[in-house]
């Protein structure tokens, strides 16, 4: 509840919007765990680099110095990342990815006749143990920083903020936004918003893979010309909240608009990570929404090239001819 208030209270402008507190373990405990993993990475990496043959014999796999040296470089870079970065979560996650790769390679080795099955199984058990530690450390580190591979999160919700200066006056921008039914004109994911009464509105959005998502939201804070905030009603399928603030730009040159939104991704944070990988970064989408708002308000239209000609359709036919 406290976190919800943090969004809904004034302060969209504050740059530091994420008062992170590690929830499990203290900073020092996390730190010593991370440090140990970092040094482990560096140590293992150096062994792989310097003595790949001995190591191969030790874990019972065929002699592959090139592969082991490559894995050693990977270990060392993860280690250096973990030991030197203030915010090491990405590098800790890189260890998890590395562990998965190692387990896969050991799995392949297990099928080879040249491997010593017992030794390989022992090694795999060891890696599995380290994987568990890495997984824990990565999760803790991500929770502490609110970032999972670059995705900003808070309390399991995706969090984003963005700002733009719009060359129109505050009252006009506020009025347009306040009529929530206008939002689909510039918010790409939102298909429609229907007002039920002064406070409650029904939102329909296009979710991942075209899934239709619907929820009711209430307007929480409504200060004419200054601020609008909203949140989904309890029990909504997509829990979300947001706030937009309007402020005169310095020198009377338009209005500074700051937008903050948080939502619980329908497919979980993992789903949001997948979406990010295919280019749908939530904060970038927010920025594009706000940019479309600016363009619509300043120029009366949203510039596009969608529907213009190109030589591409022709070429597809050419390729067919080529075969």
């Amino acid at each position: 509840m406290a976190l919800q208030e943090a969004v809904l209270e004034p302060g969209v402008r504050d740059f530091d919007i994420q008062p992170h507190r590690p929830r499990r373990g203290t900073v020092a405990e996390n730190d010593s765990m991370n440090r140990a993993l970092g040094w482990f990475s560096v140590g293992l990496g150096l062994t792989q680099l310097v003595a790949p043959r001995e190591l191969a014999r030790f874990i019972g796999i065929p002699d592959q110095p090139f592969l082991l040296r490559f894995l050693g470089m990977r270990e060392i870079s993860s280690g250096i990342g973990i030991l030197t970065k203030k915010e090491p979560s990405n590098w800790l996650w890189s260890r998890v990815a590395g562990d998965v790769m190692d387990l896969a390679l050991l799995g392949i080795a297990l099928k080879s006749d040249e491997s010593n099955r017992n030794k390989v199984l022992m090694a795999a058990a060891g890696v599995a143990g380290v994987t568990a530690l890495d997984w824990m450390a990565s999760r803790q580190s991500s929770e502490a920083s609110g970032r999972i591979l670059g995705l900003k999160t808070r309390d399991g919700m995706i969090a984003g903020r963005t700002a733009m200066t719009i060359n129109r006056d505050r009252a006009e921008l506020y009025r347009f936004w306040r009529d929530l039914e206008n939002l689909p004109r510039f918010m790409n994911q939102i298909q429609s918003v229907h007002r039920r009464d002064e406070r409650i509105s029904r939102w329909v959005a296009k979710g991942p893979a075209g899934v239709r998502l619907e929820w009711d939201a209430e307007t929480v804070d409504d200060r004419p010309g200054e601020r609008i905030s909203w949140r989904s009603l309890p029990g909504s399928r997509v829990e979300n909240r947001g706030a937009v603030e309007f402020e005169d730009a310095p020198g009377g040159e338009g209005t500074e608009v700051r937008l903050r939104m948080e939502y619980r991704p329908p497919a979980g944070v993992a789903g949001a990570l997948v979406a990010k990988l295919i280019g749908q970064e939530p904060e970038q989408q927010m920025r594009e929404d706000l940019r479309r708002f600016k363009r619509l308000m300043e120029t009366g239209e949203i510039p596009t090239t969608d529907g213009q000609p190109s030589g591409r359709s022709m070429m597809r036919r050419d390729r067919k001819y080529e075969r």
């Binding site: 120029t299 510039p303 090239t305 000609p309 030589g311 022709m314």
Partner: peptide, 20 residues
């Protein structure tokens, strides 16, 4: 069409996409 390659193609005519 790629590095050091241009060609004259038949493409659809452009149309108005925005009011301005």
């Amino acid at each position: 069409q790629g590095k050091k390659k241009v060609s004259v193609e038949r493409v659809p005519d452009p149309r108005i996409l925005n009011p301005r």
